[in-house]
Each structure stands twice: as C-alpha cells, then as structure tokens.
C-alpha cells in the first residue's frame, strides 16, 4: 500500500499533470488547419513549443524540483523535453484523445516532411505504450521519472536528482502493483519504455536535421 506521504505525492503529481495540458485552441487548430506539408510542419513546431511550456509548468510542481540547483533544473528540462513530449503524445494514440483527433494527428505527422525512417519507430513506440493500458497516474509518474533522470548531460548534483527520482519510482512500483495486480512484470515493462524513449530521443536530433533540410 502507499503510505500517507506517497499518497500525497501521487495526488499532487497527478493534479499537476491533469492541470497543465496543451491549450484547447491548439487542439482545435490540429483539426481546422488545412492539410499541406508546410501547415503540418508549422503546426507540429508550434505544438512542440507549447508542449515544452506545459512541461515546465508541470515540472515546477514536482515536489523538490524547485529546490534543486537552478542550472540543474535547466539541464534536466533540456535533457528530457523530447522524451517527455514523446511520452505525452503517446497518450494521444491510446484511448485518451476524443474521437477523430488521433487519426488527424497521425496523418499530419505522416505528411509533414518527416522521413519514414523516423516515423516507423515513433509509431512503434506509441503502439507499445498503448498496449500497456497505462493509467493516468502511471503516465504522470513516468513523465516525472523521465524528467528526473540524474544522468542527463551537465547535471552537477546527480545525487539530489537521484533521491527525487527514487521516491517517484517507489510510488510507481506500488501503483503498478495496485492497478495491475495480475501483471507482475508491468513495472519492469514501464521502465523498458524509458529505454525505448532514449533511442527515440537519439533519433530525434537526426530527424530535426533531415526535416530542416527537406
């Protein structure tokens, strides 16, 4: 069972995760803007920017984050923004999005000049996240855990970050036991997605380069 502190941590993180979302007018644009490679490119760039802002607002609410060294806060966010973005957009490809949005978003991504070699691993990741049937609590905790990775470049006080991440991992482990009692491997599979995210992150830099070129 979660102890009192863990329960408080979980509801606090979940509340922040639900509160800080891509603004509704952005979602409307997703549906309204007409379909061309340029439009899709601009829209995805705008969504990525808005997503970084949403991510920072969420991260400010992670208990202990704002007491970390200021430059370490920047390094953590810079190092994890891409992964957190893929994780959050993965939710769009599970049952979370209203009917129709997912198909439109998928079409826009496929027709935005991003080369096929990046599209395939991206949608494989979305599919593997979907298969895990994750609860909102798991998404919120996994996002916080991704951000609090002590091994990001330029982190000076890795131990302080590690302590925060460990507290989150412990809560996630218990949540997995409670929410997926018949799947003992569930927690391990969630952590496995984090490694998959790292590969996507690695591809992302190359993807941006080739996207700019085309």
């Amino acid at each position: 069972e979660l102890n009192q502190d863990q329960q408080a941590l979980l509801s606090y993180i979940l509340d922040a995760y639900n509160k800080h979302r891509i603004p509704p007018d952005m979602a409307k644009k997703l549906l309204q803007e007409q379909f061309s490679t340029e439009e899709n490119f601009l829209l995805l760039t705008e969504m990525a920017t808005s997503h970084v802002q949403v991510l920072v607002e969420f991260t400010k609410n992670i208990p202990g984050f704002q007491s970390l060294d200021h430059e370490d806060q920047i390094a953590l966010l810079k190092g994890s923004a891409v992964e957190a973005m893929f994780l959050r957009s993965a939710q769009a490809f599970t049952r979370k999005m209203p009917h129709g949005h997912t198909e439109v978003l998928e079409e826009r991504i496929r027709k935005s000049g991003i080369s096929e070699e990046f599209i395939v691993p991206m949608f494989n990741f979305y599919k593997s996240i979907g298969e895990l049937q994750m609860m909102q609590e798991e998404h919120a905790l996994l996002t916080a855990i991704t951000i609090l990775s002590p091994d990001r470049p330029y982190i000076r006080d890795q131990q302080a970050v590690e302590l925060l991440q460990e507290a989150m991992l412990e809560v996630l482990r218990k949540v997995c036991k409670l929410k997926h009692p018949q799947e003992p491997q569930h927690f391990a599979r969630l952590l496995g997605r984090l490694t998959e995210l790292r590969t996507l992150h690695h591809h992302h830099a190359e993807m941006l380069e080739s996207w700019r070129m085309s």
């Binding site: 760039t45 802002q53 607002e57 810079k78």
Partner: peptide, 21 residues
Amino acid sequence: PASNLGLEDIIRKALMGTVEE
C-alpha cells in the same frame, strides 16, 4: 513568437514565469 526561440530559451523563460492560477 515562442516557436522560434531555442529550447533552452523557452525553458528559461517558462521557469522564470510565475505559475499562472
């Protein structure tokens, strides 16, 4: 607009900003 700022600029700006209620 924010979209032509670099990733770090967007992060610094958002971190500085007050949490809007």
